[in-house]
Design a protein around this nucleic acid. Structure first.
Length: 468
RNA sequence: GGCCCCUUCAUCUAGCGGUUAGGAUUCCAGGUUUUCAUCCUGGCCACAGGAGUUCGAGUCUCCUAGGGGUCACCA
């Protein structure tokens, strides 16, 4: 049985790095038919963990990650932690330290001045005298004095930290509340974690947590420390690096499967494969194949993946995504299929898709001057007028793009002109610009009537200009 | 600064002692197309540096440099 977890602190929202470790943990649990648990590290009590959890679950829901059992809030388990603190105190594995904050700071200053590593000096470790008056003690755990703490990381291999690097760290503050490294170890053990997949930045917490495991007689899980994701400058990805809230990606028009695919390939790979469905991720993912080095995220690849997924998503789903996320309801349009077929290959995001659709279904208000000028040289005006008449004669008979295409073909053949001669003027008339989907597709979407109308509008505009 | 981790094209990466160092994205060129996009073809671009070990090193060892992480009564 594999049990993994995602244990964020309540900082407000889920960012891209968090989602990646969550994805890794989720994949590993689901792949092995195990459990994926959620816990919120809110021993600090300063932030609103309910709202933070809500934001995280919203993001999970969007990308399709689910979890088992109930969310564990550490703030609701203080009684439990207190029992363990008491036990360690009784067993002499932890002790009260009466050193005040100021005193501690002074000690650190001294050590730094001497070029030493700042650490607690253990002065109350074996204290049995009379405690100073009026000082609320903190509780410290006895860390080993010598030797080294060794553990095998599933990604980095064997990690050895000298015991002198780990001091008797505080497990309970003077107000009695427990601290992070203490409760993490307890909860991971109690929740039955077998595999802890977390960020690289926790590597140094591991020896501390191992001290707790040892003191309490718990069996540690297997650890996997996933390298960080850096920003494009190669620096640590911070929350200020722009739109890093996972939900921002939704607003920018990314598909959840594209985002997940992008993230899973950051630090993990399987040969040359770039595209992974969730099923494939579940089939192939293994945390021990995760890279040792940090990666930096680069939007180009995500954009490309998103384009790929949009291109390969059914029109039905695209229509419903546009409705849900971008307030565009095209379900009433009688040529939805043609409309999406014509626009999806030209869109890298749903935002672009929406814009491209708008460009077609809304009659052009004005014409791109450059395109206009370029398209209407020579006899273009006359050709277009002629084509409009031809089109009109087919009203009610044309439906498919191929049928419109045949009309165009016939037309250029009779007039002995190239496709470009009619294509460009027509495009400006229908779309107002010189780029866009094929004219047969556009006409099939608009229908004969609307197409002719748009042509007429341009033609009369042309007359106006001539009159001036 | 101490300790720990990391280092293959601009970016994501393959490589697990013998390869013309592969793929993808970006960029460039060509093809397809009535235009644009998609798509297809091709091109540019990398083993951080230096010592070893070895018949042979991107792959193993050490050193240097660079990057990152961490050193709280935060998590």
């Amino acid at each position: 049985m594999v049990v993994t977890r995602f244990a964020p602190s309540p900082t407000g929202y889920l960012h891209i790095g968090g989602l990646r470790t969550a994805l890794f943990s989720w994949l590993w649990a689901r792949k092995n038919g195990g459990n994926f648990l959620l816990r919120i590290e809110d021993t600090d009590m300063k932030r609103n963990s309910e709202d933070a959890m809500k934001a995280i679950l919203e993001a999970f829901d969007w990308v399709g990650l689910d979890y088992d059992a109930e969310v564990v809030y550490q703030s609701k388990r203080f009684g439990l932690y207190a029992e363990y603190i008491e036990r360690l105190l009784e067993e002499g594995k932890a002790y009260r330290c009466y050193m005040g904050k100021d005193e501690l700071d002074a000690l650190r200053q001294e050590q730094m001045a001497r070029g030493e590593r700042p650490r607690y000096d253990g002065r109350y470790r074996d204290f049995d005298g009379t405690p100073p008056e009026g000082v609320q003690p903190v509780i410290r755990i006895k860390a080993p004095l010598e030797g080294e703490i060794v553990f095998s990381d599933g990604i980095k291999g064997e990690i050895r930290i000298a015991a002198t690097e780990v001091d008797d760290f505080i497990i309970a503050r003077s107000d009695g509340t427990p601290t992070y490294n203490f409760v993490v170890a307890i909860d991971d053990a109690l929740m039955g974690l077998t595999d802890v997949i977390r960020g690289d930045d926790h590597l140094y917490n591991t020896p501390k947590q191992l001290v707790v495991y040892e003191a309490l007689g718990f069996t540690p899980p297997r650890f996997y420390h996933v390298p960080m994701i850096n920003n494009e400058e190669g620096r640590k990805l911070s929350k200020r690096d722009g739109a890093l809230d996972v939900m921002e990606y939704r607003k920018m028009g990314y598909l959840p499967e594209a985002l997940l695919n992008f993230l899973v390939r950051l630090g993990w790979s399987r040969g040359d494969q770039e595209i992974f469905s969730i099923e494939e991720m579940l089939e192939y993912f293994d945390p021990s194949n995760i890279n040792k080095s940090a990666s930096s995220y680069n939007l180009d690849k995500l954009v490309w993946l998103n384009g790929h997924y949009i291109n390969n998503t059914t029109n039905e789903r695209l229509a419903s995504l546009l409705k849900e996320d971008f307030d565009m309801d095209i379900s009433g349009h009688d040529r939805v299929e043609f409309l999406l077929d014509a626009t999806k290959t030209r869109s890298k995001t749903l935002v672009e898709l929406r814009d491209n659709i708008e460009l077609i279904i809304e009659s052009p208000e004005e014409y791109d001057p450059k395109a206009f000028k370029k398209a209407f040289k020579g006899e273009a005006h006359e050709i277009l007028a002629d084509f409009a008449r031809r089109l009109q004669s087919y009203e009610g008979e044309l439906h498919l793009p191929t049928e419109y295409h045949r009309v165009m073909e016939e037309f250029v053949k009779e007039r002995e002109i190239g496709f470009g001669k009619i294509g460009q003027p027509l495009r400006v008339a229908l779309l107002g610009r010189m780029t866009g989907p094929g004219m047969d597709e556009v006409m099939a979407i608009l229908g004969v009537r609307e197409s002719v109308e748009r042509i007429s509008r341009l033609l009369s505009r042309l007359e106006e200009l001539k009159a001036q």
